[in-house]
Nucleic acid binder design. Structure first.
Length: 193
DNA sequence: TGCCCGATTAACT
DNA sequence: GTTAATCGGGCAA
């Protein structure tokens, strides 16, 4: 197996639109549990759909901090969602992790999710957080330190691009990225024909 | 202070 | 295809 590498702080300091597709195929583990990232979305502070669009608040403070940290927020009062903060500190940009192909700690994830179907364990931003045990306790933690373990894919994967999901503003921006052919996407991409 | 709604999910019809 | 669950942020009053 080719040697995977941990992304440097510099990696996350790049444009969120450079980082997001490069995260496809990366391995993300939390306390040894997780898998391959197969779907992400990019959010930028000039983007009306971004939490940071209206300026810093206690909730989104981490987005305004340095890159390479986890921003975790409560979604619909029920779920947790995790982002990787990108670009120079203050840019308030981040990549939302939307789906993962489970590879490590399957039994733990099945127990947390109370289901056995591997395909549904981590196929959605709320689902993967439940499966990997990510909560607000992980908000603001560095991605290059435990409990996180992140390794980039050795080579660039075949990427699908499309509009983001579940938003009502800037709905046409093609800032959703997925791994071509993956069965673990939260929703299919509309492929060119 | 009150009201509306969301970067979602699962269980319905 | 539709809708309940559930709660904090953001904005109007």
């Amino acid at each position: 197996m080719a040697p995977a590498r941990s992304p440097s702080r510099k990696f996350f300091a790049q444009s969120v639109h450079m980082v997001a597709p490069r995260l496809i195929g990366a391995t993300l583990l939390v306390d040894g549990v997780g898998g391959r990232i197969v779907e992400v979305e990019a959010y930028h502070h000039l983007d009306p759909a971004a939490h940071s669009y209206r300026g810093p608040t206690p909730r989104n403070a981490v987005m305004f901090g340095p890159p390479g940290f986890a921003y975790v927020y409560r979604s619909y009062g029920i779920h947790w969602c995790v982002n990787f903060v990108c670009e120079p500190a203050g840019s308030a940009s981040a990549v939302l992790i939307r789906a993962i192909e489970p590879t490590d700690g399957l039994d733990i994830m099945r127990r947390r999710r109370r289901l056995t179907d591997e395909r549904l364990l981590c196929s959605g931003p709320g689902r993967l957080c439940e499966a990997m045990g990510i909560t607000v306790a992980h908000n603001g933690l560095a991605l290059d330190e435990p409990p996180f373990c992140l390794r980039l894919a050795p080579r660039m994967a075949d990427i699908l691009v499309g509009p983001r999901i579940g938003i009502t503003k800037a709905v046409d921006e093609p800032w959703r990225y997925g791994l071509k052919g993956s069965k673990f996407l939260s929703k299919p991409f509309k492929e060119a024909r």
